[in-house]
Design a protein around this nucleic acid. Sequence first.
DNA 1: TGCACACCTGTCCAAACGGACAGGGTCGCC
DNA 2: GGCGACCCTGTCCGTTTGGACAGGTGTGCA
Lengths: 262, 262
Amino acid sequence: MPAAAGAGMTAADLARYLSKHDLVTTLDLIDAALETRTQDQFRQLMVLTSGLIPIEHSHASVADLDENRAITRTRHQVNVNFPEGWLHTYRQLRLVEEDPVAKLLFAHDKPLIWGQIRQAHREPADRRFYGRAAEFGLRDGFSFGARFVRSNSASFFSCAGQGLTSDRRHVTIIQYLVPHLHAALAKVHLGLLKEQPLLTPREVEVLNWAKFGKTNWDISVQIGVSERAVKYHLQNAMIKLSASNRSQAVAVALSQGLIDWG
Amino acid sequence: MPAAAGAGMTAADLARYLSKHDLVTTLDLIDAALETRTQDQFRQLMVLTSGLIPIEHSHASVADLDENRAITRTRHQVNVNFPEGWLHTYRQLRLVEEDPVAKLLFAHDKPLIWGQIRQAHREPADRRFYGRAAEFGLRDGFSFGARFVRSNSASFFSCAGQGLTSDRRHVTIIQYLVPHLHAALAKVHLGLLKEQPLLTPREVEVLNWAKFGKTNWDISVQIGVSERAVKYHLQNAMIKLSASNRSQAVAVALSQGLIDWG
DNA sequence: TGCACACCTGTCCAAACGGACAGGGTCGCC
DNA sequence: GGCGACCCTGTCCGTTTGGACAGGTGTGCA
């Protein structure tokens, strides 16, 4: 009775390739992922993962996708222990535009093993890219990710380490972990969004009342200011959220996680 | 390095009380839970769970909570193999109001073992309740649940079976499974909401434009009807959603999953 | 055939909204 | 001291909205 799942995984793989200790650690990791809220907790998560798979450097980001599911813009990065120099070079030279992995990752739904990509893509531009990465010690490894349903963005994980090739054990573990690491990163991302306060406290407060269909006057009574002040805050919120009226402002704020549901 | 988690769980518990087969099945179950979208898939999930723990009857529901975290109203039920007669009696006699489990479940965050409750609550009303349940063969078992962050409701799982007492193995498995069964039920619930169409297609369409801040006139041009027709649909939507204006209508529709996130 | 329901259209009007003008204040930082 | 934030207040005016009145169609079901 095969219960699962993506990309040809079976429970049999779990039993065959993983030890009992692997299974315990994987389950524990999934559980820890549920509790993850902050960048530090997320880094801890990746450290635990590298206890399971020989990962030396790892890095995660939330990125926007274009219509071809290629990565365009990076929204947030959580660097665990990737070489800072490489990340700097990557940003500086806009390497995302020539990174073969970034182009391919979301075309399929399974982890991409760098070694395999390197053999398939031998164009001069590609080789230049691999050369640059190798300068920072990034040769073997893999990338994986998952798309967000609610927006046209995705999580993008990169793990480097010697011996990280197409080992069935590694692949099996990663496949089972991906959705949970993805969800954990999503929560971290949401937290970061709330930390860099796009909206002022007053703007959030006013939007939270507007969400319940309150009029400006209603809100002014609630928070004890003039009706004009409410209009002021709502207008500023609309500008910041690129909304043309309060309905859109509320919708955007909700979907961005800037105000709560309820 | 204890990674997790709720209610005193540790990875050591996993290794001590669970066999390798248990671990594989649990991981597989978690994976299957991720894919769950329909009632049938959810039932299948509970069947798999009963392969792990001796569950004879199980039942899940999504319910509203009051301010004391007691269950008030049941929104959706997914009956796997609970006795229909009991469910009928439960509904008919409003037993939720005297069910000791329903009162206590969300006060704490761990599974409630019926046997323990039965010993702690010996009031005549409680004993009458246990007697009724026993008539349907429901004596031993446990209940668990989790609250939704986005609304004042929760999932409520009941599992009955001989020998379902406070076994560490059972408790450990359930604790690790709860969040994922909860999430699976939430997805099923969302699917059911969309199936019973509270809103007409036109109302959904109009709300989807309103969400982008479009005026009635904008929308009328988009969908090719008069401005008055747009007002008509939006008004009906507002009535159905108990919203006092379009902002609240959009917010409610979004949070209920009646329209998508653009 | 009647009925319910979704769909569409019109007019009228008071209320609410969004944008523009204007002004005031405190606070922290360079 | 100036500067930028956030906060607060006012008036004016055109547009949008929401609610009330009114009417019509077609479809499906009892």
